[in-house]
Design a protein around this nucleic acid. Structure first.
Length: 341
DNA sequence: AAGAGGACCAACCGCGATCCG
DNA sequence: TCGGATCGCGGTTGGTCCTCT
């Protein structure tokens, strides 16, 4: 369908916001909430389009934004989440309280991406650029498995977003229920990348983070058929690949919440779902090495000796390797699941 | 001191998703 | 069910500041 312009561009101001405009916008939203962004500029006496107002509020004026320097912890989180989620800035932002997707995106593009590239790491794949030369076997498997896990995590986040929506729908039918129903945990007003405001909350904020216990990564020795992640407690994620009712290239995720059941199918990369793939043997050595390299002593250390990475699998004991994998991904997934929103 | 080039980041643009009458 | 209105996301741009020569 055709798309109308977001606003009548004639006579509307563009470019940097002045303190006066900020003040008007802030005052109006504090008093009335934003309701409709399209109608807001006229009501607030601003010569701006609604979209511009929303962006200004979301990325700058909200009171719950931390505009300070990114901490090492935040950097690490961004790198790890980016390895999992790619350029899904809003999803990443939901795990970094007080940071906006735009801010994270900018920080990635201006700092972290360059840092990775400088070290010979492809910032898109988080693999060494010469991985092809290095990885005749193990590394490509690891890479495929990284993608494998990323798909799971991606699917999980999408499922959670769906849960929020379902929860909201349910809450609408119980309009006078306590706010614990209408405002799911994690949907803190003004949090995440969404248009936080006194009257809205982010749909992207994973709704169950506060109630979902830590995720345990269990996929180190089983096959994909046996499940990759489980969550301790009442919420139980299950995976069923190669189910008879599913296409070959899809996998079903089922979340059994007390009152909501979500089932979804996600595309599955055949390469990463090989039955004999020992599930998710992600190259933690490689990834963790990168992260430490970046965060701790990036200027002093050289690239990890990737030849030794494969040695790590062979030189170290197999159980060490699996343990490292498990620990690494436990950490990432716990981070994802436990971040306050 | 001044110009050039790079780094940084706020803001814009366009598209897809979702809402709602 | 349809289609216009609105929202949210990710990519990109352009202005400003900083550093180097």
């Amino acid at each position: 369908m055709g798309r109308s312009p977001c606003c009548d561009k004639v006579g509307l101001k563009k470019g940097p916001w002045t303190p006066e405009e900020d003040q008007k916008l802030l005052a109006f939203i504090e008093e009335h909430g934003h309701g409709s962004w399209r109608a807001l500029p006229a009501k607030a006496g601003l010569q701006r389009c609604g979209k511009s107002c929303r962006l200004r509020w979301t990325n700058y004026l909200r009171s719950d934004i931390n505009r300070g320097k990114f901490s090492q912890q935040e950097e690490q989180t961004i790198i790890q989440l980016h390895a999992l989620l790619g350029n899904r800035w809003s999803a990443i932002a939901t795990h970094l309280p007080k940071r906006t997707d735009n801010e994270i995106k900018n920080y990635w593009n201006t700092h972290l991406k360059k840092r990775l590239a400088k070290m010979g790491i492809d910032p898109v794949t988080h693999k060494p650029k010469n991985a092809a030369l290095l990885s005749s076997d193990g590394q490509t498997k690891n890479a495929a498995n990284l993608s494998h896990v990323a798909q799971w995590e991606s699917a999980r986040l999408e499922a959670e977003a769906r849960l929020v929506r379902e929860s909201k729908l349910r809450s609408r039918s119980f309009q006078h229920q306590p706010s614990s129903m209408t405002t799911p945990p994690g949907c803190i007003p003004g949090s995440g990348s969404g248009s936080g405001s006194p009257s809205t909350f982010s749909e992207n904020a994973p709704p169950v983070m506060n109630s979902v216990p830590m995720t345990e990564f269990v996929g180190t020795s089983g096959s994909t058929d046996s499940g990759i992640m489980k969550e301790k407690g009442e919420h139980d994620w299950k995976s069923l690949s190669n189910s008879s009712h599913l296409p070959d290239n899809s996998v079903s995720l089922i979340s059994s919440f007390p009152d909501v059941t979500v089932s979804m199918e996600v595309p599955w990369n055949p390469e990463s779902s090989r039955a004999d793939n020992s599930s998710v043997h992600v190259g933690n050595v490689m990834e963790e090495g990168f992260t430490h390299l970046l965060l701790n002593d990036s200027t002093e250390r050289n690239l990890p000796e990737y030849g030794k990475d494969s040695d790590h699998g062979g030189g170290g004991t197999g159980s060490d390797y699996y343990e490292d994998n498990k620990n690494y991904w436990n950490r990432i997934l716990n981070l994802v699941n436990s971040s306050p929103i």
